[in-house]
Design a protein around this nucleic acid. Structure first.
Lengths: 255, 255
DNA sequence: TTTTGTGAAGACGTTCACAGCC
DNA sequence: GGCTGTGAACGTCTTCACAAAA
């Protein structure tokens, strides 16, 4: 799992497993594409293929949300889009601030799929006075000095940190003190936050290192136990090709 | 977990759990910082705190690599840095190509921690002829037409896709056909790849949606079973504050 | 005494396989 | 007949708790 953890094991009522939550956005994206093509219903098999998961997992995931399918038929696309959006909280407006407007911050600000689904860039914030007032993606950059004012004024609860690593913890502390309770961290640092604050991290270098690990075992397959060499059986071929919401994340540093 | 999946359950010899692999880069980063401060040894407790995990997990993780600690003392920092680097394959050189040089691609190209640990930006590739030849992060952008030539010429096995969603699958196919076997995908699409190719994805919008899900349950805590309202017990406070390698990833779209 | 390394227990997640409903 | 929803089996990951080493 990734973000916070909890959902007391007992009192199982409201608990949607974290792994399921992490896949809902994937299903939603696939469903939205179907919706745009005016496809009325979809089977678990078809939708699973579009989302890159297997159908048993998808059905189990949906079973946590309730019984939204029809046996023998499949799922109603529009209805599912609505139910998943609701479950994810995307039917409400989420103002987001981006702190650190380097290349990465600018890329995030320009990200289209942002505004579309419930998220609204409420402000861009940077410590460089030279940037203050300059528009990025049509939004004028504001100075870090005004961070607290901005957060409180617009009741922002989600902050994106795209600063250099050295500034990240300080920015995080200020965001949290001002009322932010969810943080998406692109700086390659472990952030310390109080209980009740969720942090997710995106770390390029971690992702590359994980890829390198697997890449390494694709060629040289000696080392192992038995006596066999290159062939499978001793060291399996590392099938891969999955890409489901597994267990971790990567980070990027702005320019 | 995230990337490929496999490591045949039987023949347990060489199998480092995927969850452990995903945390090794975290440990490595913390260790590198200690190394720079010339700290000679570190206990599992201290290192775990620096990496943001708990110490039992860290010890278990290290136990898969071998017994590199000393009871009553802790771990030798330099030695561990070496062992983890070796395990991750960072002692060798990994040429990487970045395809799609928008804001995001530029941010990635400029990412410092890149060159540092084994990774080398072998080429920047973009479909826009207007960009061809222009230097980004000191490296001239090359045109997509030369993609195959570049991959094969430099024996590149890791590719980063930072193109718009619409171009991602096509770029992916060409990368794979040219010999790339590990892909880091920033485009908000599910990529189809043959067996033997690892894909990891980084998706901003998925991360935000996961945060929104948890954010949503922080305020309104009715709905639940019993009769109690805002207080804990019925709906636990969602402790959070974790940020370990959990189960998934997010994506970003270049400018 | 301090701190590692690890069996064993438990929580979590995935997959199977089929009963139940359309 | 086709497809969903789900109990049960299985596998993976985390945490506990303690024996063993320095």
């Amino acid at each position: 799992m990734a973000t916070g953890r909890s959902h007391r094991p007992a009192t199982r009522s409201r608990g949607i497993p974290e792994a399921t939550v992490a896949r809902l956005p994937l299903y939603l994206r696939a469903l939205t594409a179907l919706s745009e093509r005016s496809v009325p219903t979809v089977s678990s098999e078809e939708l699973a293929a579009a989302a890159g998961v297997n159908s048993a997992k998808l059905r189990k995931d949906f079973s946590y949300l309730g019984s939204y399918g029809t046996r023998g038929v499949g799922y109603d696309v529009e209805y599912l889009v609505y139910q998943i959006s609701r479950e994810l909280g995307l039917t409400q407006d989420w103002p987001v601030v981006i702190v650190g407007i380097g290349n990465l911050g600018a890329a995030l600000a320009n990200y289209g799929g942002f505004a579309s689904r419930g998220f609204r860039v409420a402000a861009l914030i940077d410590a460089d006075p030279g940037l203050t007032g300059k528009p990025v993606a049509g939004i004028p950059v504001q100075h870090t000095d005004d961070l607290e004012k901005i957060i409180k004024g617009d009741r922002v609860s989600i902050g994106v940190i795209a600063t250099p690593a050295g500034a990240a913890q300080q920015v995080c502390d200020r965001l949290v003190a001002a009322g932010v309770t969810s943080i998406l961290n692109f700086a390659p640092t472990v952030l310390a936050v109080p209980d009740g604050v969720d942090v997710r991290k995106v770390d390029l270098s971690i992702e590359l290192q994980i890829l390198a690990f697997h890449e390494q075992r694709k060629s040289g397959e000696e080392t192992a136990a038995g006596g066999a060499k290159a062939t499978a059986a001793v060291t399996p071929p590392t099938d891969s090709s999955d890409q489901g919401p597994d267990g971790d994340v990567p980070a990027v540093m702005p320019a």
